[in-house]
Simulated scan of single mutants.
Amino acid sequence: MTAFDTIAQRAPGAYARIAIVLGSGWGGLTQLLSDAVRIPYADLEGFPHATVAGHSGELVLGTLGQNRVAVMSGRKHGYETGDINGMQLPLQTLKALGCEVLVQTNAAGSLRTHLPPQSLMLVADHINFPQRSPLVGATGSERFVGMVDAYDPALRAQAQSIAKAHGKVLTEGVYAWAFGPQFETPAEIRMFAQLGADAVGMSTVPETILARHAGLRVLALSLITNMGAGLSHEQLSHAHTLEQAQAASVAASGLLAQIVGQLDLAQSLP
Rank of each mutant, 00 (worst) to 15 (best):
E234R: 04
I224A: 01
T51M: 11
S203E: 12
F179C: 13
L89Y: 09
Q158H: 02
N85H: 09
A229F: 10
N226E: 07
M72N: 10
P134Y: 06
G62K: 05
G261F: 02
S249A: 15
A211H: 06
G146A: 11
L32F: 03
K168A: 15
G215P: 04
W26T: 12
A36R: 09
A193G: 15
A211I: 07
D43S: 14
L61M: 06
L91K: 14
F4I: 14
Q31Y: 01
T225F: 00
G78I: 15
I162C: 03
A252C: 01
A245E: 03
L256C: 07
R156Y: 00
G25S: 05
G230A: 13
T113Y: 01
G137P: 12
A53L: 13
Q244R: 15
R212V: 09
F129T: 15
T139F: 09
G140V: 03
T6Q: 12
T171I: 09
A154S: 10
M147V: 11
E58Q: 11
P270D: 05
G74S: 11
L155N: 00
A187R: 13
L263I: 00
G13E: 09
E172T: 11
A187M: 08
E172A: 10
Q244S: 07
D149T: 08
Q160R: 11
F192T: 13
H49Q: 12
L64C: 03
L111E: 04
P206E: 02
M72E: 06
L102E: 05
G137V: 12
V71M: 05
A197Y: 03
P12G: 13
A220L: 01
G82T: 07
V52M: 06
P206H: 06
S222A: 11
S203I: 15
V218N: 08
E188K: 04
A245M: 09
Q118S: 02
Q92S: 09
Q182E: 14
D152W: 02
I20F: 06
Y79Q: 08
A19S: 05
A165Q: 06
Q182I: 10
F192Q: 13
Q158P: 06
T185H: 02
I224R: 04
D198C: 07
S34M: 11
T171L: 10
T204D: 01
G230T: 07
P130M: 10
G140R: 03
S268H: 05
A42P: 05
I209M: 14
V205Q: 08
A42L: 08
G28P: 01
C99P: 13
L102V: 00
E188R: 08
K95S: 11
P153V: 07
A257T: 08
L115A: 07
W26F: 03
D149E: 11
R112D: 13
A138T: 10
G167H: 01
Q131R: 15
I84V: 15
Y151T: 05
S161E: 01
T113V: 12
L29H: 01
A248E: 01
A211P: 02
H213Q: 12
A42F: 02
V145T: 12
I84Y: 04
H55Q: 14
A187Q: 09
N67E: 12
D5V: 15
Q194R: 15
A107I: 00
D264M: 02
P116N: 08
I18K: 09
P48G: 11
V60M: 07
E142W: 04
V136K: 14
A19M: 07
H233K: 15
G140T: 03
F47L: 10
P130A: 10
Q88T: 13
G215Y: 02
L223G: 05
M87G: 05
L64P: 00
S203R: 11
V218R: 01
